[in-house]
Amino acid sequence: MSESFWDWAYVWQVLPELVDASVVTVKATVSGFALALIIGLAFAIARMIGPGWLRQTTIGIVEVIRSTPLLIQLFLLYYVMPEFGLTLDAMTAGVLALGLHYGAYCSEVYRAGLEGVPKGQWEAAVALNLPPWVTMKRIILPQAIPPAVPALGNYLVALFKETPLLSVIAVLELMQTAKLLGSESFRYIEPITLVGLFFLFFSLVAAALVRALERRLGRGSGRVAR
């Protein structure tokens, strides 16, 4: 056991570096989730109104992404893309992997939202002679997305908690920085505990926000999110 159990001087020494690294974590979270929202919507729409082959392919892709580890997907993107002549830097590969993985999850959320729109809305749009694309954009999505927001928020929190995985392809986010600091000084307890506290704090805040949003949306229109 080392001389002191918890060294505040060391905490103050490593804190600035961890704060810098947390900016990288936040960047990865925000861009990964933005990508996930777009990819998820594309998957959900392809699955709903695409031709048969596209529908089957999308279902297959979503299932494969959802039932295999993010870590393997990360390695595939980072190590395999260069063989096809596309070299990604670690951060881009990481954001892409997060976006794809959570895009697959988000597509299920969107799908639930889309299927929650009453059939009559589609029929009315057909009766008004609206093309399918316009129906989707102007009629269906505005009704499908608000009830999906709380579930999407939960996946934002989940994605945030998966960002430490990017440390394995040497993105200098929180976890990687904490490990480097630990290996320099042979004291892991402070940096890793601080990283844990950082995640705990932000997850609790985010969870509270999602709950508040849920309550607000639930009040807004009578028929969503009981």
């Binding site: 844990g196 997850s203 609790l204």
Partner: peptide, 22 residues
Amino acid sequence: ETFRGTSALVQLFWLFFVLPHF
């Protein structure tokens, strides 16, 4: 809340690197 609020990887590293200090 602690285990749901932090990453599985952080928990793994915490037990792996920090428990030896105890």
